[in-house]
Computed example of a mutant assay.
Amino acid sequence: MTESAARHTPGTPCWESLMVHGMAATQKFYGALFGWEFLPGPQQLGPYVRALLDGHEVAGIGHLPADRHLPIAWTPYLATDDAHATAEMIRHCGGTVAVGPLDAGEAGRLAIASDPAGAVFGIWQAAAHAGAAVKGVPGTPVWNELVTRDTASVGKFYQHLFGYEEEAVVSADFDYLTLHLDGRPVAGVHGVGNALPRDLGAHWMTYFEVEDTDDTVQRVVELGGHVLRPARDGGHGRMATVADPEGAAFTVVRSAR
């Protein structure tokens, strides 16, 4: 189902952004994979483009300078009505604000932060740019999931920030929270214990809707990416976790229909 952009309730993932060393090669990869086209975006943090699908903005890609050896990863931005107040709350609750808040031209205000477990996320106070203009169709972000050691402590951090209602999966071997706003699920928190990758640590995972999971995985490999977790069937559809040529991990899913 297509969902058009409007004002996002604070705490809702509203934008996905990727910082890479090779912007041209990255645009070529995602353009071929998802059919994205690109237009220039705000340049406050350096060269940046917005990815469009059928003329609708869906994500952003920016340039990471060669001397900045940061993890290459998709980063979700959570909506806020007041970036300054949210940044202060992040610090108060034990998180870290690494960048901002700062103005992104007429588009809005942003900050980049990490939760107490180290997972990086952004906050976005919209002005001219509300965020993703369409979602829920192939080639667009459809879900965000925090992968962390356990849900108990970090779940409270996000709940304090945005007032999420939490729905826990009660199981002896599965630690999962679904975060709800306005009565609907907006993100998940998956506690994986000692299975948390040492080289990655706690992180947010972006899910992209695709028409055919297996075909998309094959295309990822053909375009120079690689498979992190092969295609499998789950409760929400058929999914696989892959990485682009610079190593940014993401999950592709054909939602159960």
Rank of each mutant, 00 (worst) to 15 (best):
E3P: 00
S4P: 03
H8Q: 03
T9C: 10
P13S: 12
P13C: 02
P13L: 13
W15M: 14
E16K: 07
E16F: 08
M19R: 06
V20G: 12
T26D: 00
Q27E: 03
Q27S: 08
Q27V: 03
W36A: 09
L39Y: 10
P40M: 08
Q43D: 01
Q44E: 15
V49Q: 15
E57G: 07
G60Y: 04
D67A: 11
P71Y: 00
T75N: 09
A79W: 05
T80S: 11
H84W: 13
R91W: 02
H92I: 04
G94P: 13
G95P: 08
V99T: 09
V99F: 02
E106T: 12
A113S: 09
P116V: 01
A117D: 14
G118W: 03
V120F: 02
F121P: 03
F121E: 07
W124V: 05
Q125A: 03
A126N: 10
A127K: 15
G131T: 12
V137D: 09
P138M: 14
T140K: 04
R149I: 08
D150F: 10
K156Q: 15
Y158H: 09
Q159C: 06
F162V: 04
Y164L: 00
Y164R: 01
A168E: 11
V169F: 03
V169D: 11
S171T: 00
A172H: 06
D173I: 00
Y176C: 06
Y176H: 15
D182W: 01
G183A: 02
P185I: 01
V192M: 03
G193F: 01
G193C: 01
G193N: 05
A202I: 04
T206K: 03
D212M: 05
D212K: 08
D215R: 15
V220Q: 07
V221Q: 15
V221F: 13
L223T: 12
L223Y: 11
G225N: 01
G225R: 00
P230E: 04
H236N: 15
H236Y: 15
G237H: 04
A240I: 04
E246L: 00
E246Y: 04
E246T: 01
G247V: 08
F250Y: 03
S255N: 13
